[in-house]
């Protein structure tokens, strides 16, 4: 565990010492709040609800999370750091989980920085604390799932740019998967089946205030699957390199 902890610390330190970490955090706050307060005309709508605020996050995260994850493995691969990881006395799975954890902690930090939004809105109107809690849980689950997808794509790419573009495409694809059968004119069964694995549909259900085991299991499963796939990709490369 010490090795994994060291990687978490190292990655967090790297994020804190890179412009991208601060820029992504600042952009997240500015764009989400700007869209909520100004584009959605918060004051004119006269409704004490954060539904519109949390509705902006999926698209925002689909653009911003790839900027964080693209560098994780792709950068290490391009500058040869992956060889150093390869000789670390720690399993590949732990390396991947440690990197996931560091980005998860960063995401949590960004979410904590958004707390003044509900606090401010509650000065003006009565918010439901339990509903806001579920909305934050939904946002955290969505963010962690997107991070795991980003890590997987990064593990398969040598170029950061390619990792960014691919991750964004995959995230948008997973988010709006349920629109595809409709566009292709497939049947209702396809629509309902894709809705089950659509990130946006799951996030939408959760953020309405229904803390459903099915949705939590879905997000946990997605994280597990993509981290497992990332581990597999890194492990294969690690073995090929040092086999």
């Amino acid at each position: 565990m010490t090795g994994a902890y060291a990687i978490v610390r190292r990655d967090l330190f790297a994020l804190a010492n890179s412009a991208i970490g601060w820029v992504v955090a600042a952009l997240s706050l500015a764009l989400s709040s700007g869209a909520f307060f100004w584009v959605n005309a918060f004051l004119a709508r006269d409704v004490a609800s954060l539904d519109a605020y949390f509705a902006t996050w999926p698209a925002l995260l689909a653009f911003l999370i790839p900027a964080l994850t693209m560098r994780v493995f792709a950068e290490e691969r391009s500058n040869g750091m992956d060889e150093m990881i390869g000789v670390l006395p720690i399993s590949t799975g732990r390396v991947v989980v440690a990197k996931f954890a560091s980005l998860g902690i960063y995401l949590f930090f960004v979410m904590v920085m958004t707390v003044p939004v509900p606090l401010g809105v509650s000065l003006l109107g009565e918010l439901s604390p339990s509903l806001v809690f579920v909305q934050y849980v939904a946002l955290l689950l969505l963010g962690l799932t997107m991070v795991s997808v980003g890590l997987f794509v990064s593990s398969r790419c040598a170029s950061q740019l390619l990792a960014y573009v691919l991750t964004t495409l995959v995230l948008f694809g997973l988010s709006f998967l349920d629109s595809l059968p409709l566009m292709l004119g497939l049947g209702a069964q396809w629509v309902e089946a894709t809705r089950l694995i659509s990130l946006d549909a799951r996030y939408g259900r959760l953020s309405q205030g229904l803390l459903d085991v099915a949705d939590i299991v879905f997000f946990a499963a997605m994280v597990a699957i993509f981290l497992r796939a990332a581990t597999h990709a890194i492990h294969a490369r690690r073995y090929v390199t040092h086999g």
Binding site: A25, A26, L29, A30, W38, P116, V117, G120, V121
Partner: peptide, 17 residues
């Protein structure tokens, strides 16, 4: 509330960074 969240906090983050 609007300015704090959409402007002041993001600018502060950039400054700290």
């Amino acid at each position: 509330v609007e300015s704090l969240n959409a402007v002041v906090l993001p600018v502060m983050l950039l400054l700290v960074g």
